[in-house]
Design a protein around this nucleic acid. Structure first.
Lengths: 217, 217
DNA sequence: AGATTAATTAACGATATCGTTAATTTCAAG
DNA sequence: CTTGAAATTAACGATATCGTTAATTAATCT
């Protein structure tokens, strides 16, 4: 499954292979958390996935809470930062911003299969175990600004009155992230469809901007 | 939290109160599964939530697997059936059908707070523990028919070419169900928004049909 | 070289969990 | 009334899990 296990013996290992155990524990945790959920994953399972003993988790992270802290700090938060790093064009036009956010989100997903289940299950979900930790790091001002620019569009009559600007970002997650959570590592939906990241990005963008209407013009 | 506990004593209880223990075990399971996930919920926790001893779960359902079977059979499948029971009008026009499906979905959610987290986490999610059980009962023909009518629209140029008809139903779940999973029992999003079922239905429908564009005409 | 520090596995004890069985009580049928 | 079936709690034993400590080995510093 993961890297070559290379029989581990008691005592400090030789410095030959550049095996960063701490990093591989974080990776292992992400894999298992994405697969079975945080609450259902034991420390021992993480250690096993990483090919080390449970005591290593204690050695590097002291306890479960600190492991979660490290995960958020080192793996998840940087991604959120990246998704919300917008160009000036995007800041000026909420539709452009949404397009950019979707594109960066899905680009992030492509190289991080653990992201969608984790985001949906442990961050977005009310009782997700990363939610509180990540909430402090969310770019709330940007979310608010987005809702406000959409509200301005709406006031001008440039947006359907039934749309709720405050719900738009959750809708983006539903359109861009949820399909990947549903498809899993194999990127296949139960109906038999294979998910191409680019195609999902185009679909989500088109649906968000135009809905099920003809292409404009 | 739940009904009055009424001190239980050993032996068969008096037949006064009409307490359907089996039903209340199913309810309790749904509550806990929605809250912490199936994999992380022990039988004992379910029994405790229902106010009975763990042995009752064994008595009524034999084991965890059978409990899940009963849950799907008696609580979830009927709902799916209801959501997909469409009028003739809806069968003729995919946009109408989607509108109806969203309305019925959200109506179902209103009285069943456990539904959104369960659907998102245990059915839609790739490693969800109800997925395989429910898959056999999904109305696949209707899903396929929906995708096909949308494809027909698209071929006529009445639908943006970037839309993927096969992704539309997942998009519906993302728009109509995910917000409730994110808001939890309190129906409040972390940004402070309170979710009114009707408002969410209107938002999801508008976004799906028109996107972030002005209202037509 | 010697001493100290880093990294690792083995092993343990306390606690929790699962499924099951025995005991107990009430209901229902003859 | 009596007898058998239904419904329930208590209690148990096997197994797992968590976090921790001790032992062991390699690297690094002096």
């Amino acid at each position: 499954m993961s890297h070559a296990p290379a029989i581990r013996t008691r005592g400090r290992p030789l410095a030959t292979a550049e095996q960063d155990v701490r990093a591989s524990l974080l990776d292992a945790a992400l894999v298992r958390f994405a697969e079975r959920g945080i609450a259902a994953t034991s420390m021992a399972q993480i250690a096993k996935q990483a090919g080390v003993t449970p005591a290593m988790v204690h050695y590097y992270f002291s306890n479960r809470d600190r492991l979660l802290d490290a995960l958020v700090e080192e793996r998840v938060a940087p991604l959120i930062e990246q998704v919300w790093t917008a160009t000036d064009d995007e800041v000026a036009d909420p539709r452009l911003l949404l397009q950019g956010v979707i594109a960066r989100m899905i680009a992030g997903v492509a190289s991080r299969p653990w992201l969608p289940p984790l985001w949906i299950g442990e961050i977005l979900n009310e009782s997700g175990l990363l939610r509180a930790r990540l909430f402090a790091r969310l770019p709330l001002p940007r979310l608010r600004a987005l809702a406000e620019s959409l509200g301005a569009l709406q006031a001008r009559g440039d947006l359907h009155p039934d749309i709720n600007p405050q719900l738009v970002f959750v809708s983006v997650l539903g359109l861009a992230m949820l399909p990947f959570a549903a498809a899993g590592q194999q990127r296949r939906l139960p109906i038999g469809l294979t998910l191409e990241p680019d195609a999902v990005a185009r679909h989500a963008t088109a649906l968000l901007l135009h809905g099920l209407r003809p292409a404009p013009r």
